[in-house]
Simulated scan of single mutants.
Amino acid sequence: MKKALTVADEDLALEIVMMAGCGLRNGEARAVNVHNVVAQDVYRVREQIHSNTLKPAKLKHRKTGEFREVPLPRSVREAIEHYAAKHGTTKEGYLLCGPGGYFTEGMERRRVKRLFEDLPPEEGVGMYGFRHYFASNALDSGIPITDVAEWMGHKSIEETYRTYRHLMPGSITKAARILDAGLWEAA
């Protein structure tokens, strides 16, 4: 991720930080808004930039007006603040809406292709990998899968479990050891 951030332009870097640091989808990251920072460590995901209309739209798996809250790492909050101070915001608080409007997915794909041309070749590298980075980082750090599923906006925990189960292979072994120790202490 650090290599990607060193070669990305400022707009793409902010999108990457939002995906890797908060677990946002591409369209949600493009809708980054200073008004969604609701606490020092909480970002409220209210909308996404729709891939077809290129306008703010409701979140996936949510009704209009519904939102979810995600952890806001200090470094991500500082990236939002730095970008806003340097580039300003729209009157509604959006950051990644330039004079030509929001980036299209096609524009993003071209920018990402250029981004990864300068990096060592890796199979399947793309923007969505930064969202997976968030989930991997959270699960590897022992954050419960139920929390990760909620933060990522998955429709059900089964989706999270199917996608990220491989990151928790030691949980059965660890549970067996803990339960075994508990059995002998109780006896």
Rank of each mutant, 00 (worst) to 15 (best):
P73K: 02
L54H: 15
Y102W: 15
H82D: 12
K91I: 15
A85Y: 01
V76M: 05
E66G: 01
I49S: 01
T64R: 08
I80R: 11
K60F: 00
E78D: 05
K86T: 13
E69L: 14
G98Y: 05
N52L: 13
C97E: 12
H50A: 12
L72P: 03
L96E: 10
A85T: 05
R68S: 09
P71M: 12
T64E: 14
G101A: 05
E81Y: 04
R74C: 07
P73D: 02
H61G: 07
H82S: 11
H61L: 09
Q48T: 12
A79V: 09
C97G: 00
G98S: 13
H82Q: 13
V70K: 12
R77T: 12
H61E: 15
G93S: 13
L72N: 07
F103H: 07
E92P: 04
E78I: 06
H61M: 12
V70S: 11
Y94E: 06
K63S: 12
E47I: 03
T89S: 13
A85P: 02
C97M: 12
R68Y: 12
L96P: 05
G93T: 13
E69N: 10
V76K: 02
Y102H: 13
L59W: 06
G100K: 03
R62T: 11
I80E: 12
E78S: 08
K91P: 10
E92K: 02
E66A: 01
L59N: 07
I49K: 01
G100H: 04
R74W: 00
H61F: 08
Q48N: 10
E66H: 05
Q48G: 06
K63L: 10
A84D: 08
K58P: 04
E81G: 04
H82K: 15
H87Q: 14
T90A: 06
K60Y: 00
L72E: 04
S75G: 03
A85I: 01
A84S: 14
E66C: 00
H61Q: 10
V70Q: 11
Y94R: 11
E92T: 06
L54T: 05
A79T: 10
G101C: 05
G65M: 05
T53E: 08
T53N: 08
A79Q: 05
G100C: 08
Q48K: 08
K60R: 14
K58F: 06
R62V: 09
R62P: 07
Y94C: 03
H61N: 15
T89L: 15
H82A: 14
G100L: 13
G93D: 06
N52T: 02
L95T: 07
E92N: 01
T64N: 10
F103V: 05
T53W: 09
R74M: 09
G93H: 14
H82R: 15
T64G: 08
E66S: 03
H87F: 15
H82I: 01
L96M: 14
